[in-house]
């Protein structure tokens, strides 16, 4: 008798605690995804909507620009992700394994751009590089660039600002992986004659692989959907799938096509992340096999540390 209400309470309390979060995410995360999927099959925004494949035919047609725009966006996202890793890796390495004092203070400073609105980062970039501004005016005075020249409103500016926004994420996630590396492990490997390459390939890379994967997941999807940076900074030629979606919403008012394009973007992003995951898994399997056949001690130690 005493057991029954207790057991009931055991299931009831977690359900009660989960209810608000579950409900909110059902309505505001799952609901929107379902709504976007439904709209992509409508001929017009309800009421009075009818089922049609027309949006998908438009989105997937080779006569239209959209497939090309999706590829451009994925290319931009891949480029920015790779550049972000290249810029962040040495930094995370220095913070986690080279600095001997005040690591946390330096790491905390990385969070300042990360906490600042991306719009303010874009704005500060424009202020710095605007024609006649602090960088361009002296260059123009020295006749190194034409008067009124600027890198703002070019694809370079767009990519630099995307790096400005996303390198901090990558530094922070890589730091959490690299800080687990035992410095004495590196010293031991060095004193046993391991070269820089060996250290990197056999110790650092395997240990930071999870951080790299998390960082890529944090950087790739938002960049693939980015529309503000191209619009404000990229100049006239910078037009991506995010811009096409934004145009359909705010200028054309074609919600079904916008929904269809967003879903196309989502599928493309998920496919890329799936490929990335498969690649990481394959690399890990390969690494495991190699360390078994060579009987190398280093990866085993590294795996134990991770």
């Amino acid at each position: 008798m005493a057991l029954a209400p207790r057991r009931l309470g055991r299931a009831f309390i977690p359900a009660l605690l989960m209810a608000p979060t579950g409900l909110l995410l059902l309505v505001m995360i799952v609901g929107p995804l379902v709504a976007v999927a439904a709209y992509s099959l409508f001929d017009q925004a309800p009421p009075g909507a009818h089922f049609t494949w027309a949006q998908w035919e438009t989105a997937l047609s080779f006569q239209q620009v959209y497939l090309g725009l999706v590829l451009r966006s994925l290319g931009l996202a891949a480029l920015v992700t790779v550049l972000t890793i290249a810029a962040a890796y040495p930094m995370a390495y220095a913070l986690a394994l080279v600095l001997r004092r005040n690591q946390m203070t330096w790491l905390a400073l990385v969070m300042v751009p990360f906490l600042t609105s991306s719009l303010l980062l874009i704005y500060s970039f424009i202020v710095l590089f605007q024609p006649g501004g602090p960088v361009m005016a002296p260059l123009a005075a020295l006749h190194l660039v034409a008067r009124g020249a600027t890198i703002v409103y070019t694809p370079y500016a767009m990519i630099l600002v995307l790096l400005y926004e996303y390198v901090p994420y990558m530094v922070l996630t890589l730091y959490t992986s690299l800080e687990q590396v035992d410095r004495s492990l590196l010293d031991a490997a060095r004193s046993l004659g391991a070269g820089r390459r060996t250290l990197f390939v056999r110790i650092l890379l395997p240990l930071s692989a999870p951080g790299l994967a998390v960082g890529a997941v944090l950087v790739f999807p938002p960049v693939a959907g980015a529309f503000v940076e191209p619009e404000i900074l990229g100049g006239p030629s910078a037009f991506f799938i995010g811009n096409a979606i934004q145009n359909q919403i705010v200028q054309v008012y074609d919600w079904p096509l916008a929904a269809c394009l967003s879903l196309l973007l989502l599928f493309a992003v998920l496919a890329c992340l799936g490929l990335l995951q498969a690649a990481v898994a394959a690399a890990r399997a390969l690494g495991a096999r190699r360390s078994r056949t060579t009987g190398g001690a280093t990866p085993t130690v590294a795996e134990a540390a991770s």
Binding site: P32, L33, L218, P221, P222, A224, G242, I249, A259, L266
Partner: peptide, 17 residues
Amino acid sequence: ATITVPWIILSIGMNIV
């Protein structure tokens, strides 16, 4: 998984919902 969905998609869906 919600982390991997670009916010532009969720925002448009939220508007519809």
